[in-house]
């Protein structure tokens, strides 16, 4: 085993003191069936999955969706669907009460068409939740200044978007992610939303992300199980490439073979 491989295999993703061997966090929505979701989860190797909080339907007895998740998975409740800091805080409190976890993926949406985050409301909610002892993982625009504010507010990790949620466009602004990584070397950065296929996840990791959170890329693939495996490998490959340190880009060729001793 090479040094780099050894380093990777020992390396964990750490969020508020909790260690994860997998750098992939996945969602639980949009699957065609619970069985399909469960096999995709298994194939992905993810140790943490995110779930949404919704009103219980009162007209029928509903079985618990959580029963379909492997008990070994860490559940990360999210505040998806909230448009104000206040609703996000209420949702986080309800999730904590039901699941007895202080982890929360904070999401405050600003606009229905783009599902872009409302950064101002997100920051406001983050401050309240951190004060209440939550481990806050906020989804936000890929902006360095916002990242700093969220970290100053006490967020355990920051989750910049790669592209609009569910768009599958991949990392739209690699420069922003690279700057964020360079300027915030100690922050835990998890790219959240917008990844479409394995290469997108690898790129996010090569840029220095500590992890990637995705849902649609796996759930809407024709074969979610295969895509989950592809994502797992892409994240490992991207992480390894980041640690290996890539060669510089050059505009012109640079011969790999010696220039001396060519027959004339």
């Amino acid at each position: 085993m090479s040094t780099a491989t050894a380093r990777v295999s020992n390396e964990k993703l750490i969020i508020a003191g909790r260690e994860f061997s997998s750098r992939l966090i996945i969602g639980t929505g949009k699957y065609r069936s619970y069985d399909q979701m469960r096999s995709a989860h298994e194939a992905s190797g993810a140790e943490m999955v995110t779930v949404a909080v919704r009103r219980v339907p009162l007209d029928r007895s509903s079985e618990s969706f959580l029963d379909y998740l492997s008990p070994s998975l860490q559940i990360l409740p999210n505040t998806a669907g909230c448009y104000t800091a206040e609703d996000a805080v209420r949702t986080a409190r309800l999730a904590r009460e039901a699941l007895q976890t202080d982890l929360v993926k904070l999401e405050v949406i600003g606009d229905q068409t783009t599902l872009f985050p409302d950064n101002e409301q997100t920051l406001e909610a983050a401050r309240v939740l951190v004060k209440e002892g939550f481990v806050v993982l906020p989804y936000f625009s890929d902006d360095l200044i916002m990242a700093k504010k969220l970290l100053d507010a006490g967020c355990a990790a920051i989750m910049p978007l790669a592209a609009p949620i569910g768009s599958g466009l991949g990392v739209q602004n690699p420069a922003n992610l690279r700057i964020m990584r360079e300027q915030l070397p100690d922050a835990t950065i998890i790219v959240d939303a917008g990844v479409g296929t394995a290469s997108d996840a690898a790129i996010a990791m090569e840029l220095g992300a500590d992890g990637v959170l995705m849902n649609t890329a796996i759930a809407e693939a024709e074969d979610p199980g295969k895509m989950a495996t592809a994502m797992k490998l892409a994240i490992e490959a991207g992480r390894l490439a980041y640690l290996a340190g890539r060669m510089p880009k050059r505009l012109y060729a640079s011969a790999s073979s010696p220039l001396q001793g060519v027959i004339k």
Binding site: G27, R54, L58, T91
Partner: peptide, 20 residues
């Protein structure tokens, strides 16, 4: 009274149904 449970979701799938 609001009574909630958990549903499948990742990144905002159910944008039209606010939870509370």
């Amino acid at each position: 009274i609001e009574i909630v449970h958990f549903v499948g979701g990742g990144v905002d799938v159910y944008s039209n149904s606010s939870c509370v």
